[in-house]
Design a protein around this nucleic acid. Structure first.
Lengths: 355, 355
DNA sequence: CTGAAAGCGCTTACAG
DNA sequence: CTGAAAGCGCTTACAG
């Protein structure tokens, strides 16, 4: 190895960029001497921006987690519109593992459900330090995970028995955020388009209702419309039927849809029936899937930080491995969702009366 | 400095203890060479047990967080039965800061509420890297925190707008755990003793109701008794009145109390009225405060991991400082609660009929 | 409060 | 798969 100019972010480089000595950088990073506050801020700023701090932190825990068993069902793996959300999460998780030098052992079930026995077997075989389970939080699975020696975490799930770590977006608060926004715009009658009985859908429904409860309004349980599925074309067909039967969207001036796919299907149905979005009716989605940006009009939605779920999941596994077993409670982490305002929402058209 | 025998946990010491070379330890810790799995496990085990891994991790982030502003109201600071829970949390947080070498700047409000303006002032003056707020999650405060340059976290609170990090025990799931246990014991009529309108109390009430909902039973909204306060003596007086008026605890065979203080007051009132706990009625608390262990009978309760809240809060602050601002969603962390079974609960006495 | 220099801790290229 | 040895990165005792 020659003394070439390989650019490894280190204390040396930071010293150069901050125009101080190496010692000073070290002192700042370790609070080992009383350094002036301007210098301190400059050095820390550069250390953060160059990614040195993040690298240092990552390195500190890398050893603990060399092998992780990735558990999921087949349907989340190929990329498609249908499973866009699951795929995004999974892919971000894989990337994160790669950047931390963690070996992933996939344990993909052919069936629609994860079989706990298969996990036990895979753990015995590969002896991973950690287990990451995708979108399955049934109690039989949780019981099994809890009794395993490895640390484990469920991505996009929750454990009511509070024994296993979980990370998920804040579906309920996110839905409240969306509904609050529609209420703030002045909409009085808002319908929720949702589908089925999955936990995620239920949580979003609760958030929708929360917004009305907290505003002191009547809780609109009768304004919840189940469109039967979350595939765009199916939603379009079903919601078209609903529109025909109800003679247009009236009395609703806004539709909050508990997934972007649902929103896009609904928007098409509305447009086919001659309604202009957002002039006649507002439509709001949930997920911030890529294709929502490209629709016409572009879809207002709730951003779900799918990329961060993997990051947090790995942090939880690492923390579980650092701390002695008896001294750590299970953690349930919810990640904040953000309102993304595009062109499918607006104030209600007060002269609205179409039929 | 002489070459004396100072015992600094390091890679050298681990090598000695594990009977391998320094290089090998390094390889294991960095996965930089394919090391045999027995050796690997031995080295990692020793590295964890000696606290080397934890130290390494702590060191990696120590630089970020040298000064933290601790914000709270006066009432949580002196130690007493009344504020046992708040005091425990606060104290654990202080200890954690100390062990990580973080300087705490207390900003204690004389009033019963935190004044956002005072925080802004204190931040301008002391320029802390992080802000830790105790038990206050009003939106005006959150708005202020969100607009501040420092990272911030609320201990024992939650942010519905999902912009500021929070850590809290899982009150709702914890209450469900307690209620599930009473149901499992065979109790059919269970009353909830609670007080006031604070968020914590409300969350525990929801958990109580959840247990019935999920079991497919009637939701016992009419079995919620507000005892007006959480001080033991007040509860005792108020609940005694209730017992006199209702001619004993019938038809309830169990009382779930949303705080240990409430449970102890209720237990005394029951005993004064001639009821034996748990033979005639079961009583369950929530908090796992010290004095519950010493009561007679000792109190079954829900353990709340107050000591861990501080640990998690600091981890959140550190993480916020490591990651670039735009790339991180706010996090809401809930810590798992555990059932603590002592002597105040049992199966319902089927021949129970006292008056 | 900041830096030059000594030196410790850890990593790494290479040998076996 | 493991270790001896060279050497880099970071810390620290000390000077100013």
């Amino acid at each position: 190895m020659n003394g070439g100019s390989r650019v490894t972010t280190g204390i040396k480089q930071i010293a150069k960029l901050a125009n101080v000595s190496i010692s000073t950088v070290s002192h700042v990073l370790n609070a080992s001497a009383p350094i002036g506050s301007e210098v301190q801020e400059r050095v820390l700023g550069i250390a953060r921006e160059t990614g040195y701090l993040a690298k240092r932190r990552r390195k500190a825990s890398i050893s603990l987690l060399s092998t992780v068993l990735l558990v999921g069902t087949k349907k989340a793996f190929p990329k498609s519109d249908r499973n866009f959300v699951a795929w995004t999460m999974l892919n971000a998780f894989r990337k994160e593992c790669q950047s931390r030098g963690i070996r992933l052992i996939p344990q993909i079930e052919e069936e629609n459900e994860i079989n706990p026995d298969n996990i036990v077997e895979a753990v015995a075989k590969h002896r991973p330090q950690g287990i990451a389970v995708m979108q399955d939080d049934r109690q039989c699975l949780i019981d099994m995970l809890y009794n395993l020696p490895s640390a484990s975490v469920i991505l996009s799930g929750q454990d009511q028995s509070m024994r296993v770590d979980t990370v998920a977006p804040s579906n309920r608060f996110g839905a409240k955020l969306a509904t609050d926004h529609l209420l703030d715009l002045g909409h009085k009658k808002i319908a929720l388009l949702t589908w089925g009985n999955r936990r995620v859908a239920k949580q979003r429904t609760e958030g929708f209702l929360d917004a009305f409860r907290q505003a002191g309004l009547d809780v609109p349980v009768s304004d919840i419309i189940d469109v039967g599925d979350y595939q765009q074309d199916v939603v379009e067909t079903n919601f078209s039927k609903w529109l025909s039967k109800h003679n247009g969207p009236s009395p609703y001036s806004a539709f909050f849809c508990s997934a972007d796919n649902v929103a896009l299907g609904a928007m098409k149905a509305l447009q086919n029936h001659g309604y202009s979005v957002p002039n006649d009716v507002s439509v709001m989605g949930f997920d911030n899937a890529l294709f929502g940006e490209l629709s016409s009009p572009s879809l207002s939605t709730i951003h779900v930080p799918m990329e961060e779920i993997g990051h947090v999941a790995l942090n939880l596994l690492e923390e579980a491995l650092t701390l002695p077993d008896g001294e750590r409670s299970a953690r349930r982490v919810e990640l904040g969702c953000r309102l993304i305002l595009r062109n499918s929402t607006g104030s209600p058209n007060t002269s609205f009366s179409k039929s």
